[in-house]
Write a protein that binds this DNA or RNA. Structure first.
Length: 210
DNA sequence: ATTACGATTGCCT
DNA sequence: GGCAATCGTAATC
């Protein structure tokens, strides 16, 4: 059960509910810590799977490290969609990464989901990951592989109640309060911005300590 | 048309 | 810790 795996991290939480209207309309640096503790669910023909978000990063238009920094392109158009839209991109010729677009339509902001605590459908995730014993969702590309998130999910509405592909539920008891923060991972520019957020002490992070 | 380069991962030393 | 894998994208020629 999910609450067992996440014991003590969300005091008073009884489960997850649909996000309220406007939840995703705040700016990426404000939305990123609010996504910690949210449940990322994916329904597919291979089975359902879900995980609790434990690590995120914010990206904005005035941010030299962001895909949206040089304006809209066919690839990054979902970053400019209204908040709550899935932005999935393909990188290094082999990996997909999953983002939640933030802010109002026309604003190119998004939150990269970097790590999950596996919650349900762990057998499906394990199989998709090639039966590897190490972390199944402790990296932005690894969690996409585990959950079966691909480019075909780019542009999906993440606040919908059901249907194939990724969607998001928010913790009934509110977001994680004591989020840790650090510089973002895997970029060379704007290292001064502390826009990586994580659940302190979680064993499911992509990196132990910054 | 050509080219350089990734918001990464896994294997090798 | 170092580095190859692998290819779509976007900038440049």
């Amino acid at each position: 059960m999910a609450s067992d795996l996440f014991a003590g991290r969300i005091p008073g939480s009884g489960g997850w509910i649909l996000p309220q209207p406007g939840f995703f309309s705040r700016r990426a640096p404000e939305l990123a810590p609010e996504l910690l503790g949210c449940l990322l669910c994916v329904d597919s023909p291979e089975g359902k799977a879900s995980g609790i978000i434990v690590e995120t990063e914010a990206y904005t238009e005035d941010d030299p490290a962001s895909h949206s920094h040089r304006g809209p392109t066919p690839r990054n158009r979902s970053m400019f969609a209204r908040g709550g839209t899935a932005y999935v991109y393909f990188i290094y010729g082999m990996h997909s990464c999953f983002n939640v677009s933030a802010g109002p339509a026309g604003v190119g902001e998004a939150v990269l989901v970097r790590a999950l605590e596996p919650c349900s459908g762990i057998d499906v995730m394990f199989r998709r990951r090639g039966n590897r014993g190490d972390g199944m969702a402790d990296g932005p590309a690894k969690l996409c592989q585990a959950l079966g998130i691909t480019l075909e999910h780019d542009g999906l509405d993440l606040s919908r109640a059901s249907g194939p592909g990724p969607r998001l539920l928010v913790p009934e008891g509110g977001a994680v309060k004591d989020a840790g923060r650090s510089a973002r991972v895997g970029i060379s520019r704007a290292l001064d911005r502390q826009w990586r957020f994580f659940v302190p002490g979680s064993p499911f992070l992509s990196r132990r300590s910054p």
